[in-house]
């Protein structure tokens, strides 16, 4: 599903924030991505959700070499990827419903389709009663769930969540993880950036560890569900 070979990344003309990163994620896998703050987790995520091009190395995604993909083909690939951003990136002028509906709207889905899927997902994350509220009036946890609903509303093949448990308590984090595991059971490939070690211990998925831009360790004994 995703393959990195000696990938380097820099912002503009700055120093490399990722160096010689190589790994492979099989389809249907579930990985944690750990590392201290500033280690490069979000940067690695940005490469994976095609927001940034590597400064060197090879990335292939959905069996396609990123360096040879024409710009016009990127939207089709991006539509297979769901992202929960570290800062949610909900749009404040839209309601919760409209925010969650946005990726479907971008795909050109019909009004009926949008109503059905968004309604289902808001119920799934427990936000049905907040669908007309604006994100600014939601609690941190509610915003997080809205962001998750938006990330999976298109049934993506790859789900990338950047510290989705960053600002919720442990009990809540566990509930979120169960939500994501459910998606994984349905076949979605999942990568979760987190430095919540209690979660990693509890869910026992393989771990990618970043240390100052270098990928240190890849979990050797993946434990897949189902």
């Amino acid at each position: 599903m995703i393959r990195f070979e000696n990938v380097g990344m820099r912002y503009g003309t700055g120093p490399e924030v990722l160096r010689d990163v190589s790994f492979e994620l099989p389809q249907g896998s579930f990985h944690f991505l750990t590392g201290t703050s500033g280690a490069g987790k979000s940067s690695l995520m940005r490469l994976m959700y095609l927001a940034h091009r590597p400064s060197r190395g090879l990335i292939s995604i959905f069996e396609r070499d990123l360096s040879t993909i024409p710009r016009a083909d990127l939207p089709a690939l991006r539509r297979k990827i769901g992202v929960v951003f570290q800062d949610f990136r909900l749009l404040n002028h839209l309601t919760t419903f409209e925010n969650v509906a946005l990726p479907l709207k971008v795909k050109g889905a019909s009004e009926g389709m949008i109503r059905k899927h968004v309604g289902e997902l808001l119920a799934w994350v427990g936000l049905s009663d907040q669908m007309h509220a604006h994100p600014a009036t939601l609690s941190g946890g509610q915003q997080q769930r809205a962001a998750i609903a938006r990330a999976v509303v298109t049934r993506p093949q790859l789900l990338l969540a950047d510290e989705p448990t960053g600002n919720v308590d442990d009990a809540y984090a566990v509930r979120l993880l169960f939500l994501l595991q459910e998606l994984h059971r349905q076949g979605t490939t999942v990568v979760i950036a987190t430095h919540n070690h209690a979660l990693i211990e509890r869910f026992k998925h393989p771990v990618l560890h970043l240390d100052d831009g270098i990928l240190m360790r890849v979990g050797e004994d993946p434990i897949y569900d189902g």
Partner: peptide, 16 residues
């Protein structure tokens, strides 16, 4: 800019 980037990441075409 950031909203446009977001739309791109959802797979929006430039035309959209």
């Amino acid at each position: 800019r950031s909203t446009i980037e977001l739309l791109h990441l959802f797979g929006a075409q430039d035309n959209y």
